[in-house]
């Protein structure tokens, strides 16, 4: 008996059978999915290097430019040290804010708006594994930018870093990144659309950075403004970075660590509960939630 071609076609090998129930039901361990997410985010980073390039280049240009316009200046407020001693760690902290906060707000909002998060949410990928992926990529960009900024400051602009200050600097960078990241995730849930991501992120970060002595030391700052800044997450981080280049250098103070941890833990908790996978602004989300309660 010969079968017509149409039959042969329909008899083509069926795709793999689902495994007997019982085995397929067991999800993969969430932890096992995290490395794949880091790899995924790094791939995206490598394929779209422009975003992270700006994260490195803007602080670097500011470092060089600000050093060029004030070459001979020394800083009374920091015990008479050259301005580059201030600018180098300050711009390194600016780079961490870019990598940990701005990039995260923009990246998460774009992925959400394009429906990428929505598609991932239909899989067994846990929220925290997705976030670990993003954090991993941010950490690599942040570490790279800090190394470049410090390298240029030390090698070309003759900033001095005592080797005893390095562990403190590493700790400050790590804490600063974690806190920025948690705040970045929270902030992304407030951003209504891709177009708003960058303005919202910089609109929040820059004013705080200005009063937190990220761009220039402000010894004459009003006391009340100083205490507002000290309670916000940027100043304790920037000051801890800057103190590694002070003469003599010192590390992060307990007070600074306390403020940062409070922000970090608070933001992480809020992030876990408010993380959204669906596109659209918060107002639309609320309307949706209301309608689903009715």
């Amino acid at each position: 008996m010969t079968s017509p071609p149409a039959d042969a076609d329909s008899m083509r090998a069926a795709p793999g059978a689902p495994p007997a129930s019982g085995t397929s039901e067991r999800p993969r361990l969430g932890l096992a999915l995290a490395p794949g997410q880091v790899r995924y985010q790094l791939l995206l980073l490598v394929r779209n290097p422009l975003g992270s390039f700006i994260t490195v280049v803007v602080p670097l240009m500011l470092l060089i430019a600000l050093d060029l316009v004030t070459p001979e200046m020394t800083l009374q407020s920091l015990g008479g040290v050259p301005v580059v001693q201030f600018l180098t760690p300050a711009m390194a902290s600016f780079a961490v804010l870019n990598a940990g906060f701005v990039d995260v707000v923009v990246g998460t909002t774009v992925a959400r708006d394009q429906g990428v998060l929505r598609r991932l949410h239909a899989t067994p990928l846990p929220t925290w594994a997705l976030l670990i992926g993003r954090l991993g990529a941010s950490a690599i960009v942040a570490a790279g930018s800090v190394l470049v900024v410090l390298g240029v400051g030390i090698i070309f602009l003759h900033a001095h870093l005592a080797s005893s200050a390095i562990p403190g600097l590493v700790l400050s960078t790590t804490v600063g990144l974690l806190v920025s990241f948690a705040l970045g995730v929270v902030c992304s849930t407030l951003v209504p659309s891709t177009e708003a991501a960058l303005p919202v992120a910089y609109g929040l970060m820059l004013p705080v950075a200005f009063i937190s002595e990220v761009f220039f030391p402000a010894p004459g700052e009003a006391a009340w403004l100083r205490s507002v800044a000290a309670a916000l997450p940027v100043a304790p981080f920037a000051h801890a970075m800057e103190s590694a280049f002070a003469v003599p250098p010192h590390g992060m103070t307990g007070g600074q660590l306390g403020v940062l941890l409070a922000w970090g833990v608070g933001a992480a908790v809020v992030a876990i509960f408010t993380f959204r996978w669906e596109p659209g602004g918060l107002r639309r989300q609320r309307a949706r939630a209301r309608s689903s309660l009715r």
């Binding site: 039901e25 995206l44 779209n48 992925a111 990428v116 239909a122 067994p124």
Partner: peptide
């Protein structure tokens, strides 16, 4: 939860995948 999602495949009417991969 993840237990159920592991056993369900979906094609959504509108969703996105990263164009860079």
């Amino acid at each position: 939860g993840r237990h159920l999602k592991t056993q369900v495949g979906v094609v959504l009417q509108s969703a996105g995948i990263d164009g860079a991969l």
